[in-house]
């Protein structure tokens, strides 16, 4: 394990003051889903300087993850993603506080949502996305939504009370990712857009995609909010 240094976050201080960084760093974030999106989001949160993460994923790495998931390697196939993330994030910041769970989020005590400041939706199951939106409302926490499929993605920060995901997905259980899969680059791009929204939301910067969903099209480089914010 490495040794944390005072310099390791200085690259972030060009876009925020030391006081803002300090405030951001004390966010406790729940990342649900540690695949294509979640692996990049969790690593990014650690590299931003967030001190405390709760990581949830029931799944293990397999060969089909190698094309896109940050910590999927031939050495990690068969290992729980949460277990691998624990080891890798400790290499980034040895002092980071990590709580990991190798079960479905629906099987955890919902009190877990009360112990975090923000919930990250990085799961690949639409019913679970709806569950997270409901839990975010019940436990009065913001939800950072992300989703990918083919060239396309979605992002948005949803306030408690949001019904945007329920409205968008309606009764569907899967989207066009079923046919388009998930190529190497889309989860990484969308995950890092989610990280930008995390920073903007926590630091109250303008331009955050708040209570809206932005559709991301990497084929045409079209980034467009399609939902209207309720006022």
């Amino acid at each position: 394990m490495g040794i944390d240094t005072d310099r390791q976050f200085e690259g972030n201080l060009g876009i925020m003051t030391p006081a803002e960084w300090e405030r951001m760093s004390f966010q406790r974030v729940l990342v649900v889903g540690l695949g294509g999106l979640g692996g990049h989001v969790a690593a990014g949160l650690a590299r931003l300087g967030v001190r405390s993460l709760v990581l949830v994923d029931f799944d293990r790495f397999d060969a089909s993850n190698l094309n896109r998931q940050l910590y999927a390697t031939h050495a990690t196939i068969g290992k729980y993603k949460a277990e691998v993330l624990y080891d890798e994030l400790k290499k980034i910041r040895s002092g980071i506080d990590l709580e990991v769970h190798y079960v479905r989020i629906e099987d955890l005590d919902p009190a877990i949502f009360d112990r975090v400041d923000m919930i990250v939706d990085a799961v690949d199951a639409i019913p679970t996305k709806r569950y997270l939106e409901t839990m975010a409302t019940v436990h009065d926490r913001p939800l950072l939504h992300g989703a990918v499929g083919g060239w396309y993605g979605q992002i948005g920060v949803l306030s408690p009370g949001s019904q945007l995901l329920h409205d968008l997905y309606a009764g569907a259980d899967e989207g066009i990712e079923r046919d388009l899969g998930s190529p190497t680059f889309t989860p990484a791009v969308v995950a890092n857009m989610m990280l930008a929204e995390f920073v903007k939301h926590v630091l109250k910067r303008p331009g955050v995609v708040l209570d809206e969903i932005m559709m991301v099209d990497l084929l045409h480089h079209d980034y467009r909010v399609v939902t209207r914010r309720k006022r």
Binding site: G33, G35, G36, L37, G38, A122, V123, D124, A125, I126, K129, G146, A147, V148, G149, G150, Y152, G153, Q154, L168, Y169, A172, E174, G175, I176, E177, S182, P187, M215, V226
Partner: peptide, 10 residues
């Protein structure tokens, strides 16, 4: 009017 598709992958 927008015609689009949603995605749900992670």
């Amino acid at each position: 009017v927008v015609f689009t598709h949603f995605v749900g992958g992670g």
